[in-house]
Design a protein around this nucleic acid. Structure first.
Lengths: 328, 328
DNA sequence: CTGTTAGCGCTTTCAC
DNA sequence: GTGAAAGCGCTAACAG
């Protein structure tokens, strides 16, 4: 293993100088600095993080805990986070272990900045592990109850925007497929604000784990066209996979017979139907950016950031799957 | 921060003794050991892992380089690898960075066992990085040219099994959609062995990056039914997403009008069509298991393993999408 | 059984 | 602008 001492020997300087040169510290002439850098490169020098860590407490590596759900969206998001991190010269490590194990794993590797996707109740084991974790944990997703740094995704507002879009197109009856979450609240809010009739039948309350999901959706899609909404909002990307399949099965034509908005914009979505799908949800690039900004500054200005700056708005991307209702 | 020196002072021993006591090393009387342990506990001592790591540079962690392509299959695979690793008390870290960056990242963190998915030409930068990597790299996927440990997936044999299955069902004309890879070789081999007519028209040579992909597939699916095969093999899961969409567009009914076999068994596949899809490809559990076995034993019996033991067979899973041809 | 001490690779202060 | 050296917390080898 090559250390800064080896480089020092090669370069004919002391290893203190090598350290300064490689870390961009002042007090080294540009000439020797570039010479040292070249030698380090050529010798395949890899810094020893354990040693670094013993001296200063910094680590330019961010750990990410992979959420069990969120499938494709998070997959895409982590690609973007990686790009953004590379641009900033920061390393990224992912763990797909149970959250509490992921934390110890990171701790063992001197990673003191961690991103955690919040999507449901946290286990007692994880909450305990968080307490004793020595670094910073950024919670992304739902409104965070905790003290630490967080980034909230305005899911409610996002779905609200979907309703507004459909209302503006002229849809009177708008359906919702999904679970009773923030997204559902945004939906009901939209109905109220845009003065659409609240029709309990137009809400298909279900989730992926629901054994009756298929029957419920199929039941709704098979109704007489006069007896159902002209537009529908599907509350997650996972649900959209199911929904698309059942749309085919029920031979419903999108958007001629039904306008469709999906939550979360992942490329795979647009392979599901002959038409591209209008989506709402956080913009992946924005999210990746804000996420990196927040975590890198987490220690610095702990609570200087306004609570409002911690919210990621949803973005509506209009595509082929939404049209004015038939006959307009 | 409390260190072993603080504990030593409290206990009236030297810190060497504290180290031995806390690490279960022999050479400490049970009496002092328990006393020291009690003091450590009471002082909230947390060992400094960076310092530990500097001395004994081991880590029971395996690094995995996330491939740029292969999408969902690898995603599922890494879940299984994680489960298998947890069972064995081994940590897993994933990197989605460029392979060469992933390697240095692992090296910085003292991760000396790395799994790399081989799927195409490797960049010069990565080959160089591999050379100077101090640990073991397990190459999984294609036949590995290199010396190191490897695990080959028999893609050719897998597709061959698909052809056999279709032949046994009675299909005379079998089509292939995909690229000119091992899988295609398995297809042609199958045609020969099962005495099926080689029909150049039944091969839709394309890949996801091909701008004409859609036109080619749609062209084939739109042909008169007497002028095309009664069964088709699609060579990747990514391609299957496209294929399924075009099947819908061309209003071809699976399996009544066309039997279908896909490569790689990922759950998402079965949401694409009204029927579940027959697949071939490596079994994810087997792969995860063999992978862990191989990498954990990589140092021990380097070349004791027979070349044949390094091959993962493909598995055929028959589902609804394959039936005897219409009229049989 | 316990004390002593040489490093592990690096950053940082203090001299020159 | 560069060298010298202290020390981060710990393990392990050796001495007693």
């Amino acid at each position: 293993m090559v250390t800064i001492k080896d480089i020092a020997k090669q370069a004919g300087v002391t290893y203190g100088t090598v350290s300064r040169a490689l870390n961009g510290e002042p007090g080294v002439s540009e000439k020797t600095r570039s010479r040292i850098k070249a030698i380090a490169e050529q010798m395949n020098y890899v810094p020893n993080l354990a040693a670094k860590r013993m001296v200063d407490r910094s680590s330019n590596c961010i750990g990410i805990i992979w959420p069990k759900i969120e499938g494709l969206f998070f997959y895409r998001l982590s690609e973007r986070i990686q790009e953004e991190a590379s641009r900033r010269g920061i390393r990224i490590m992912l763990s797909v272990a149970e959250p509490e194990d992921a934390l110890s794993s990171f701790q063992e590797h001197f990673i003191d900045k961690v991103v955690h996707w919040v999507y449901s109740e946290q286990t007692a084991a994880f909450i305990a592990a968080k307490q004793s974790f020595p670094g910073t944990i950024l919670e992304v997703g739902s409104r965070s109850a905790g003290e630490g740094p967080s980034l909230e995704i305005d899911r409610k507002g996002a779905v609200f925007k979907a309703v507004r879009h459909l209302a503006e197109l002229g849809h009177e009856r708008i359906a919702f497929v999904g679970a009773r979450t923030d997204k559902w609240v945004g939906y009901t809010q939209g109905l109220v604000d845009f003065d659409r009739e609240y029709h309990p039948d137009d809400i298909v309350m279900t989730r992926l784990s629901d054994p009756d999901m298929e029957a419920k959706i199929l039941g709704y899609l098979s109704r007489d066209r006069n007896d159902r909404a002209t537009a529908v909002i599907v509350d997650s990307q996972g649900m959209m996979f199911e929904f698309a399949r059942l749309v085919h099965a029920a031979k419903v034509r999108i958007p001629e017979q039904l306008s469709l908005v999906g939550y979360d914009d992942v490329p795979e979505l647009h392979r599901l139907l002959p038409v591209s799908i209008t989506t709402v949800g956080p913009d992946i690039d924005t999210l990746a950016n804000r996420l990196m900004d927040t975590i890198t500054r987490a220690d610095a200005a702990e609570d200087s950031t306004d609570r409002n700056d911690r919210i990621i708005e949803g973005v509506l991307t209009v595509r082929e799957s939404t049209q004015p209702p038939f006959g307009m």
